[in-house]
Structure formats: structure tokens, C-alpha cells
Nucleic acid binder design. Structure first.
Length: 659
RNA sequence: GCCUGGGUAGCUCAGUCGGUAGAGCAACGCAUUCGUAAUGCGUAGGUCAGGAGUUCGAAUCUCCUCCCAGGCUCCA
């Protein structure tokens, strides 16, 4: 007898008995699906498999191999972790335990203010394994608010969540269900957790997880509220998926620019200088110079003019610009000089560029005026936020400020965006999307009309660029909205690189103007833009993108010449000199070790070309070429031919051809 | 800033119960002269991050400071 009809994603119908659940549906489709099912999407909503279906429902069975499925697995694993922690630390308070990208976490407050240590992860893991082995069902319970308050009387964070739900029923689902029903999941008689769900049907569906680290986290992310103990983990639908994720992590670690930067002798952070302050070594210096020089040339060709400004300034400048109002805590404390004058290290270049603009009257004929500077800025980042070259206290921005009229603004933005993308492509980044950050709630200055206009223009320019556009509501700076260019690197991570910001405010703060064609005094618009973000961070991204195997034009050492025996060393030096005269960065390593050992060293150092010269080469003016990434060296290549090849590659910014 | 973990030779790491500081690689020296990913022998290298304390004696135990790594609302 079948008195219930549901629709599958392919619109086919399925007859089921009255009272059938999503789990029953999965079973009716096939044993394999039933085995792999973790949840169901019913009429678009992600629900437990135990949900009773109604006539006419559209149902998609969710398996572990989907994003939805992994979310459910991770969320359920977090739940199991909470149960394990509760068993090991009776009286622990539970906060929240969501799934996050690639994993999950759960926040706890342990009795007596105890902390987790790394060793605890193993104990918790063991406890979790036994909970999973117990094959506990995740039983959904619906409660009234009052019942919820009673059930979680001893859980202050859960209570706070309940109170928040009762006073702000903003969530649509809750509004629909009357805002008075909350749900909990009970795994066993001894463990119940307030949770929206859905969950896998039973703990036995879990198991491919690893607890990764312990951390502190403030309740609700607010440093004025209690600090909780957080445990992060990752969980997947299969052992293979888990291992592949762990391999990815290992690959990211191999590419880490801090490790490579040290190994390749590019830069360091001497503790004598201070945290977050890097020094560049000669090899890193070569790389940096090549990058900056290329950027300079591109800017020159694109109509930018080059300016310079000092690293410190009187407080007045940053009072006018608003920096001291909006983020004084991010600036280094001032030094007070004679007569009580306060001087600050500059956190941004824009105020200086505005003063350059203001140094004399400007005509509309000069606009757009594009001022560029490799400007070093200093920001007092929280010590815990510092991270290699990507988050530092001293950095150099490839910063420019464009002053233009309102009428020019749209075209100038489009042009700037195109320029950004072209330049990034020169460095081998190809995969982009754009993010539009709009008005931040409280901190924004300026009128609503200005903001709407600016946001609309940016949105149009972004759309016209033909790239994927993601919205970041409220992510703009206090003075204007921005477009940021996000780039995906070789292992699929995304980095925010360039930003283009519109600013109506600073020109007003500094009261700058130009004389229009109608001989009237007008206020220009300012566009802030940094393409690399900071030179340091961009280098870090490139190092990781290429795993240290940089394109030849950026390599500190492009060619290393090795003589087979030491009586070939003179010829090796002669070859090197010819390459050097063509602008190639080349060294010679003398033949006092076996050739294989010297080749190995050069390979380990990621030199693009190892050149070997022996008897035949001396006789015929040729060389042997062993390119990076190749195990198949070429012999008898004419010196001139090799020289052209490297020169061509440098000019085209490409990687060595692994022939 | 706060939480957890860490800091031993240039690098990667060992160092037991508190009892004279260890290895491999790198560096340097000598020998070796070799055609595409590790030649042999030898030498040198240390305020065990820094400071204070406990102790007959501290890399090791205690406290303080510095630095590094991960984390600090992708919401029940």
C-alpha cells in the first residue's frame, strides 16, 4: 500500500508508505545509497534522515561525498567530540561546535578554568573512537523554550544562545516554526546537546577524523568576553578523503614561504630588529628588485608619475586624514620631539600624496593625476597576528593614488582594474575573482548618496571585467567601498591581492581642489590602489605559488656553470662571462667535487639551468643544459643558442622549458 | 593583547632519574679530476633563546622576559 509520493532530484516519482522517512527513501532506492546517506535535502532544506516525508516533497538524499554531506559529518563529529570532552571533564560547559571549511571545532569552558594541552587530544580521540564504536543514534528532540531552559540549566553558553533566540527570532526557519521551538540531539541518556542539526543517523557513520590543534577563542569572538578552549579537527567521508586532505596540508607546509625563504636565503626576521620586521638578503633582494623594476616599468607606461615621501610625520597629518581617529591602536605610538611635537610612523601613504597634489593649484587638464610610490608603511599589528611576510609591522606598498573628476571616475576604475589584472598575469597568476566590499555599518563617513553611487560604479566595473564577482557586505573602508582582486594559487588557495578603493572623503578632509573648464573650483575624487598589496606579501604568495621554483626572470641565480674536471673551469668561467654580459645571473662552481654532487646541490637549490661543460664543449664551443624539472639533459648546445633561449625566457617571464 | 605548543651547532633533530654537550647534513682543510641528483679523510663549530632562583651540581626543576608557530563568531 503506497499513499505517499515524493520527487527525486531528476523529477522521477517514488511511492512510499505513509510515515516513511528520508532514510526509508534512500533504502528503497538502493542499499548502497542507504549506506552512504548522511542527511536529506527536503524541499531545499537540509534535514535528518529520520524526518518523516510528506506527500509531494522534493527529496535529495545527501551522501558524505557532497559539500552538504561533509558539513553534516563534520558537525556530527564536533558533537561526538563534545560528548567525549564531557565524559573526560564532567561539568565542562559547551559553547558552539560548527563545521568550518575542511573541518570543525568546538568551544568549551572546562571546570575549574582548566586548559587543554596537546596531550589531551589523544585522550579525546580515544574517547571519540569508543563513542563511534558504540553506534549511538543521534535522536532529535523538539523542545519549547521553557523546556530548553530547564534542560540546559547548567550550560550557561547554551542558555545564552536560547535567550538570544527567544529575543531575536531573526532566523527565518525559527520565525516559521513560531520561534518557540528549539531542538536538541541526544546521543545517549547521558548526553544531550542543544543543536540545530541535522546530524548523521548514528555515530557509526563517523570515524575518518583527526583532531588537529587546541586554541583559545573568545566567546562570540569578543575579547572582552570569557576565553574558551577550542579544539579544531578535520573530518571526511572516507579514509582516502581524509588522507588526501592531510597530504594537501603537508604540501602547503613544504611550500611555506617562511621555510623556503630561509632555505633559499631570501630574507629573515632578526629578533634584534623586532617581530614582524624583515630584512632582505642579497638573493631575496634580487628577486624583489626584479619584481619592483617590472612594476615600475608597467606603471610608467600606464601614465603614473613617481613620488617619494618620508616615513614619519607630525600627528596633524594623520588627524586630518582620519587615521588617528579611526585606528590609532594600529599605529605605532608617537615619538615626542622638542616643543612637544608628536611624530608618527606612517601607516599609509595617501596623506602624503594628497599633500603633493595640494602643493600647487591644479587644473582639470592635469587629471587624472596618478601618483605612485613604493611606500614603506608601519602598522602596529597585534603580536599574535604576525605571520611571516604576509602579516608584518613594516612593509612596502606599491601604492598609488589617482585624482580624477567625477566624470572620469568610472573609466579610470575600469582602466585600473584592467591594469591590475595584466600586471598580475605577468607574474604567472591567472585565476582571479573579484570581491566588492560595501559600506561598513558604524564606521562609514560620507553621505548615503555618495556610497550608493560609488558602490554602483564599482559593481558595474567589476561586472564589465567579466570575472566572477562576490559580495562582501560591510567590508569597505571607512572612507569608501572597494574592489579587491582575489587570486587562486597553484594549490587552490585564494589570496586577496590587489585592492582598488574609491574615496570621496579624503579630498574633502584636505580640502583639495582643481579648477574646472568652467573656471570653477571642484573637489576631485581619489582612487587608492595597491596591486601587490605589499611587496613582501606578494613575494610570499609567489614563493608559495611556485613552491620556490620561480620563473627564470625572478630567480636570484638563473644559471650555474659546472666544469666536468677542473681543467674545464677556465672555459666554464668564459661561458659564464658571456652569459653575464647578456644580463644573465650566473655563477660557476669549481670542480673539486664529483659532478653528480654539484648537480644535485644546484637542483636542490632550484637553479633553473645547470650548465655542464666538458672536453667536447671546450672543443666545439657548446655546453650541456640540464633544466629544472627535467631529467633529460641536452648535450652539445651551442653557447649562443642557449643564451638566446634564456634571454627569451626572461623576457617572456616564463618558466624554464623542461625539454 | 589572550590561549596552546615550541626555542639545544648554519639546518634537521637526539640528549634517560639533575652528574663533563651528541649525530646527520651544511661550512672549512687536505686528498680525489669525475659527462648529469650525495667521493673519502680530517678540522672547526655551543653563554642549550636571555635573566633570576632551587641545588654540591641545571639543557633538564621553578619564576620572569624575549622570539617563533597555530588559534581568537564561515553562529545552537
Amino acid at each position: 500500500m503506497s499513499d505517499l509520493q515524493v520527487f527525486l532530484p531528476d523529477e522521477s516519482r517514488r511511492e512510499l508508505a505513509e510515515g516513511a522517512t528520508a532514510g526509508d527513501l534512500a533504502a528503497s532506492v538502493g542499499a548502497r545509497l542507504a549506506r552512504e546517506a548522511v542527511a536529506a535535502r527536503v524541499n531545499g532544506e537540509l534535514l535528518d534522515l529520520s524526518v518523516a516525508l510528506r506527500d509531494g516533497d522534493h527529496v535529495a538524499i545527501v551522501t558524505g561525498e557532497s559539500d552538504d554531506g561533509r558539513d553534516v559529518i563534520r558537525h556530527s563529529t564536533a558533537h561526538v567530540m563534545a560528548q567525549a570532552v564531557t565524559r573526560l571533564w564532567p561539568g565542562a560547559h559547551l559553547a558552539i561546535g560548527p563545521s568550518v571549511r575542511d573541518g570543525f571545532y568546538y568551544d568549551f569552558a572546562l571546570p575549574g578554568g582548566a586548559h587543554f594541552s596537546d596531550d589531551d587530544l589523544e585522550r579525546i580521540t580515544t574517547e571519540m573512537r569508543s563513542i563511534i564504536a558504540e553506534d549511538q543514534p543521534f535522536a532529535r528532540v523538539e523542545l519549547s523554550l521553557e523546556e530548553g531552559r530547564e534542560l540546559f540549566a547548567l550550560q550557561p553558553f547554551k542558555r545564552e544562545i536560547l535567550e538570544a533566540l527567544s529575543t531575536t527570532p531573526t532566523d527565518e526557519d525559527l520565525a516559521e516554526s513560531g520561534a518557540s521551538v528549539v531542538t536538541a540531539y541526544s546521543n545517549s541518556e547521558s548526553f544531550v546537546d542543544l543543536c540545530r542539526g541535522p546530524h548523521v543517523p548514528s555515530t557509526a557513520r563517523l570515524g575518518h577524523f583527526t583532531l588537529t590543534r587546541v586554541a583559545g577563542a573568545y566567546w562570540r569572538g569578543d575579547e572582552r568576553r570569557p576565553q574558551l578552549q577550542r579544539i579544531y579537527g578535520t573530518a571526511w567521508e572516507s579514509a582516502a578523503a581524509l588522507n588526501s586532505y592531510l597530504d594537501q596540508l603537508a604540501e602547503a607546509e613544504r611550500r611555506d614561504h617562511r621555510r623556503l625563504g630561509h632555505e633559499m636565503d631570501l630574507f629573515s626576521f632578526p629578533s634584534e630588529v623586532g617581530p614582524g620586521l624583515a630584512v632582505f638578503h642579497p638573493r631575496g633582494g634580487v628577486m624583489r628588485r626584479a619584481l619592483e623594476e617590472h612594476s615600475r616599468q608597467r606603471h610608467e607606461r600606464s601614465g603614473y608619475e613617481f613620488v617619494y615621501s618620508p616615513h614619519i610625520s607630525r600627528a596633524e597629518l594623520f588627524e586630518t586624514s582620519g587615521h588617528l581617529t579611526w585606528f590609532p591602536e594600529r599605529m605605532f605610538p608617537p615619538m615626542t620631539l622638542d616643543e612637544g611635537q608628536r611624530y608618527y610612523l606612517k601607516p599609509m601613504n595617501c596623506p602624503f600624496h594628497v599633500l603633493i597634489y595640494r602643493s600647487r593649484p591644479r587644473s582639470y587638464r592635469e587629471l587624472p593625476l596618478r601618483l605612485f610610490e613604493f611606500g614603506s608603511v608601519y602598522r602596529f599589528e597585534m603580536s599574535g597576528a604576525l605571520q611571516g611576510l604576509t602579516r608584518v609591522r613594516g612593509m612596502t606598498q606599491d601604492d598609488a593614488h589617482i585624482f580624477c573628476t567625477r566624470a572620469q571616475m568610472s573609466e579610470e576604475l575600469a582602466r585600473t582594474l584592467q591594469f591590475v589584472l595584466d600586471l598580475l598575469r605577468d607574474f604567472g597568476l591567472e585565476d582571479f575573482y573579484l570581491e566588492l566590499s560595501t559600506r561598513p555599518g558604524a564606521k562609514a563617513v560620507g553621505s548615503d548618496e555618495e556610497w550608493s553611487e560609488a558602490e554602483a560604479i564599482l559593481a558595474r566595473v567589476a561586472r564589465d571585467a567579466g570575472l566572477e564577482l562576490v559580495l562582501d557586505p560591510g567590508g569597505g573602508a571607512f572612507y569608501g567601498p572597494k574592489i579587491s582582486v582575489q587570486a587562486r594559487d597553484a594549490i587552490g588557495r585564494t589570496h586577496q591581492i590587489s585592492t582598488i578603493q574609491l574615496d570621496f572623503q579624503t579630498p574633502k578632509n584636505f580640502d583639495i581642489s582643481y579648477v574646472s573648464a568652467l573656471n570653477e573650483r571642484e573637489c576631485p575624487i581619489m582612487i587608492h590602489r595597491a596591486l601587490f598589496g605589499s611587496v613582501e606579501r606578494f613575494l610570499a604568495i609567489l614563493i608559495e605559488h611556485y613552491a620556490g621554483n620561480l620563473p627564470t626572470w625572478l630567480c636570484p641565480e638563473q644559471v650555474r656553470v659546472l666544469g666536468v674536471r677542473d681543467d674545464h673551469d677556465d672555459f666554464a668561467h668564459a661561458v659564464a662571462e658571456r652569459l653575464r654580459q647578456s644580463g644573465i645571473r650566473v655563477t660557476v662552481e669549481a670542480a673539486n667535487e664529483p659532478l653528480g654532487a654539484r648537480i644535485r646541490r644546484a637542483k636542490v637549490e632550484k637553479i633553473p639551468y645547470v650548465v655542464v661543460v666538458g672536453d667536447d664543449d671546450v672543443a666545439q664551443d657548446t655546453l650541456g643544459v640540464n633544466a629544472r624539472g627535467s631529467n633529460d639533459p641536452q648535450r652539445g648546445v651551442p653557447v649562443g643558442e642557449f643564451l638566446d633561449r634564456v634571454a627569451r625566457e626572461v623576457a617572456s617571464h616564463s618558466l624554464p622549458e623542461a625539454s
